[in-house]
Amino acid sequence: MLKSRRKFITHLLSLGGYSLTFASGILHSSLANAQWLQQRFSLSNYDETILHLFNGAELINNHNKIKFHRLPYIAENGASVPIKITSTLKNVTKIYILVEKNPHPLSAEFFLSPAMEPQVSARLKMAQTSKVVTIIEADGKFYRKVKKVKVAIGGCGG
């Protein structure tokens, strides 16, 4: 399969590198959580995802301490919708981004250490016009903010 001896050797070396990193536990979280991760990211229903993530905890709506920047009202191209979330809440530990009508609503979750300011930005794919939801966990409480984004050309599916 591999064309040259040199390539073969580099592959061997890189494999060795992987096993080393696994053994030393650097990637511990990703290995242990791989299955669990796949499950929560493959949920295809928005309500199910919310239930799975927050287990019925109260979500405080439209909190004015969360702000969206860059997120447009009308996105020309659903393949790349910019979003930037900032918050004035204290002790933010997690930030979730969900797109309600995507095939798999959960897009990303961020686990912040105390060394980070609650500010995150990314680019989303959106299949169709839908609500973009962000949920922030701070001091054990969940705050939610919702914004509807119109999509001119969908970004998911062929």
């Binding site: 991760l37 790349s80 959960l106 990303a108 961020f110 912040l112 500010q119």
Partner: peptide, 25 residues
Amino acid sequence: KIKVIRCNIAGSISKNPYFDFLLKG
């Protein structure tokens, strides 16, 4: 060498993804 942020990402983040974060200090 201290982990400050960890993100789990799904396929519904755009191609060639861009992120930005704000580090205290």
